[in-house]
Nucleic acid binder design. Structure first.
Ligand code: NAD
Ligand code: NAD
Lengths: 251, 251
DNA sequence: ATGTCTTTGTGAACGCGTGCACAAAGATGG
DNA sequence: CCATCTTTGTGCACGCGTTCACAAAGACAT
């Protein structure tokens, strides 16, 4: 999960649970595939299978949007595609700026799936003067100096940060000051933003670490290969009478 | 959150809640930064602020690992770094294969943060014969034919999929058959895997759509460009007898 | 030792998310 | 028009995760 909004007490935005919102794109993808195959209707069971979720959950999710199904038949694919698209705000165009055109930023700029659903790369921005003017994915990179102007001129409200970690917060601050209210952050940093600004993060490193955790478990508890000594002896390891440090469970 | 394991009823692995596991890398990152600044101890309050979480939550998280703090003082930074690293399985080396060396795959291969925490790129694999032998990030790309052999020879258990969506499931199947038990999937597809295999996904498109949803809300309910009715249909917004707005998706 | 002050560790309450199970809606066929 | 059959929409219960609030643990000064 590379995800995470900035703290907000689960602001059930307008009655639609956050968990549901996160699944809508999943349903939409499955529905789009069905639509391309000209399938007219789907049952919650079929669609749920395609999206990899529980069918009851799917039905409940849709119930938050309204009752768009027909009992005994299922859901009208085209109609549902439209409803979900509208709910997600995909019926309008969202200009996006990408800041930090390095390895990752360039890959993102080249990513086709970006534009495929209403997200248009309005500009590529980098602090490196050498990059300025150089085209990436057919779009000339612009210098950071232009950041505020670009955002204002294009009415951009979504920004993607793909700069090194150290530059992320400053860049974020500038984006927010320039009017950006939604940020997708790829840098391994906790961004702090004012209320009203949404931040989601994608963190490869965290994902791998979570996988490693489960992998370690699967590998069997006792197979601990590390005999490595503790880097620093716990200074409080002598915990008086009750003596404790839970035996650092090696098993 | 661009994340999501394959369905498993929240298998509280060994007493540690999944939500806690997902935060451990966050704490570890903050702690590592403190360690580099030679800070000896931190209070839950300080560390929580650095990690962007609630301090009570942090303390409870740590309590699952054991009681490593000292009341009145806080936590020993070095010791905690070690404990969390061990818990996450980062005291050992995890060889990783990346399959699909295109825009994204190449960026991942070039990503420094990859190796920085025990994850070693064991091999880059692509189906394109033209790519074979070509070095990316200093590592020669190998052809898919070698996939099984590579995994076996290197004892790889973690695989990263960065192929086009259509190739993801077949590639996944081969990885699993070859012995991979943890997969990080960047392709926009729902992968189906046997029990015992963990899948986490990173989906840029979903993240953007979630941001768009909130952005639309922020933009003011009425200011939307779509001719649609009220953004929120309380529920009775039934589809008319003649309704069925065909309205093909504009994207 | 004793008292004070800081900070942990956790009991308890609460809210969200999930999934079961079923009544009701509606299609379909006779 | 009625019976039957399919599938939705949702009430309900349960468990996970979050947060508050506080007792107790321990450091530190006297
Ligand atoms: N490459 C990956 O696969 C990958 C994966 C996960 C996370 N990340 C993270 O994404 C970020 C970018 O990674 P990368 O591999 O593309 O790094 P990179 O060094 O290749 O690119 C960074 C780019 O940001 C630009 N930049 C630096 N400071 C800037 C500023 N203040 N304003 C605008 N641009 C600035 C640099 O000129 C450079 O072009 C890093 O934080 C990295 O940790 C990368
Ligand atoms: N580029 C991005 O920023 C980005 C962002 C999010 C998601 N994605 C997803 O990541 C995936 C890769 O994106 P990309 O932009 O790198 O695409 P790409 O076309 O540049 O690269 C895909 C690579 O996979 C290889 N490939 C195809 N079939 C294969 C197979 N069966 N086995 C091994 N390799 C195979 C191709 O030869 C190619 O090198 C896509 O599914 C895309 O939707 C990309």
């Amino acid at each position: 999960m590379a995800t995470g909004r900035t703290h907000r007490p689960a602001t059930r935005s307008r009655g639609i649970p956050e968990a549901t919102v996160a699944r809508l794109p999943l349903y939409l993808r499955a529905l789009t595939a069905l639509s391309e195959r000209s399938v007219p209707t789907v049952s919650s069971e079929e669609l749920a299978a395609a999206a990899g979720v529980n069918s009851a959950k799917l039905r409940k999710d849709f119930s938050y949007l309204g009752s768009y199904g027909t009992r005994g038949v299922g859901y009208d694919v085209e109609y549902l595609v439209y409803q979900i698209s509208r709910e997600l705000g995909l019926t309008q165009d969202w200009p996006v700026v990408i800041v930090g055109i390095g390895n990752l930023g360039a890959a993102l700029a080249n990513y086709g799936g970006f534009a495929s659903r209403g997200f248009r790369v309005a500009a590529l921005i980098d602090a490196d003067p050498a990059m300025a003017g150089k085209p990436v994915a057919g779009i000339p990179v612009q210098h950071s100096d232009q950041l505020e102007k670009i955002i204002e001129d294009n009415g951009v409200s979504i920004g993607v940060i793909a700069t090194p970690a150290g530059a992320a917060q400053p860049v974020c601050d500038r984006l927010v000051a320039a009017g950006i209210t939604s940020i997708l952050n790829f840098a391994p940093t906790v961004l702090s933003v004012p209320d009203g600004v949404d931040v989601r993060k994608v963190d490869l490193s965290i994902e791998l670490q979570i996988l490693a955790f489960h992998e370690q478990r699967k590998a069997g508890e006792g197979a601990a290969a590390d005999a490595g000594a503790v880097p620093l002896a716990p200074k409080a390891s002598r915990k008086g009478p009750d003596g404790d440090v839970p035996a650092v469970m090696p098993a």
